[in-house]
Design a protein around this nucleic acid. Structure first.
Length: 286
DNA sequence: AGACATGTTGCTCA
DNA sequence: ATGAGCAACATGTC
């Protein structure tokens, strides 16, 4: 599920509740070493218990939550940074404080009013942790956001040249330049830009590169607005918000049709991932 | 039963 | 050294 906008959706879900009841009273963790590979669960539990939630942010497919230890006046507060990557099947949800951890609830933060739950059946996600006054490098090193000025058409063009022989679809999935783009966003962008997913990145015309860059930003903006909501608003359901004018609602259904051309959508593995495109709209060229 | 899944990483080979 | 391709990870669903 989680790409750029879903990460922000799940961040808000925890945030809205954590804000109202911010003291962490108790923490449950599962034994999934894989998820805690860079932050041992015991260390995290010890450091985070009795801290207080401050704020959070989402970037790319990652979420950062900041907590502080209550300390005496005149003493600088210690920040505890919790990072969550949702992987393929990760999810953040909120239950009553009486919640009993389910099979795939790998991390549960109990406050007076809630149980903040991170669950992930496939365990492709990752939990990170850091103590210190400044944000950790695994957070600050995330590439500049699609909607930032640093993500310029020029920077995109240069990146495509370095990856000239790779299919453009594979290039869009590279987080070091396109933070937060995943399989469905990449297909949505290419469909709107009318570029075939297998087109080698170095063979895009200057006009196509410009169009691709614009659609990266447009899809990021639309996805954030519709999936993650505007401002502090949170859509009640992750699945109901997306209009049928997007490729999104047609790409997985068998015999799905392009909402622009009404032709049957094509599907193939490109760049190691299943890709979906509209054959009359997105054509390979020299 | 078997194919497939909205992600990353680490290994090969060119 | 750099880029491209692919298997592996672990579990659930159709």
């Amino acid at each position: 599920m989680p790409e750029l906008a879903e990460a922000e959706f799940f961040r808000k879900r925890w945030h809205q509740c954590a804000l109202r009841s911010p003291a962490i009273l108790r923490i449950h963790t599962h034994d999934a070493k894989k998820l805690f590979r860079t932050a041992p669960a015991a260390t995290l539990r010890a450091a985070l218990t009795h801290t207080v939630y401050c704020n959070s942010a989402a970037a790319a497919k990652q979420i950062l939550f900041r907590f502080q230890s209550p300390v005496a006046a005149n003493t600088p507060a210690i920040n505890a940074w919790l990072g969550i990557h949702l992987g393929m099947t990760g999810e953040l949800s909120v239950f009553a404080p009486t919640h009993t951890p389910r099979k795939h609830d790998h991390l549960v933060l109990y406050t007076a009013a809630h149980a903040l739950v991170f669950s992930d059946p496939r365990m492709f996600g990752r939990i990170q942790f850091h103590l210190g006054s400044t944000a950790p490098t695994w957070w600050t090193q995330i590439a500049p956001a699609l909607l930032s000025t640093a993500f310029s058409a020029k920077v995109v063009a240069a990146f495509l040249q370095r990856r000239a022989r790779a299919p453009i679809k594979a290039v869009l999935l590279m987080q070091e330049r396109f933070p937060g783009i995943g399989n469905w966003m990449a297909d949505e962008i290419l469909w709107r830009a009318a570029i075939h997913p297998a087109q080698p990145a170095g063979t895009l015309s200057p006009a196509e590169v410009k169009k691709l860059w614009r659609e990266c930003r447009a899809v990021a903006r639309l996805a954030l607005n519709t999936i993650a909501g505007r401002g502090d608003e949170l859509p009640p359901d992750l699945n109901i918000a997306i209009p049928d004018t997007w490729l999104f609602n047609h790409r997985w259904e068998k015999g799905g049709h392009c909402p622009k051309t009404n032709k049957t959508l094509a599907r193939a593995e490109i760049g190691g991932r299943t890709s979906c495109w509209s054959p009359t709209r997105q054509k390979l060229h020299a």
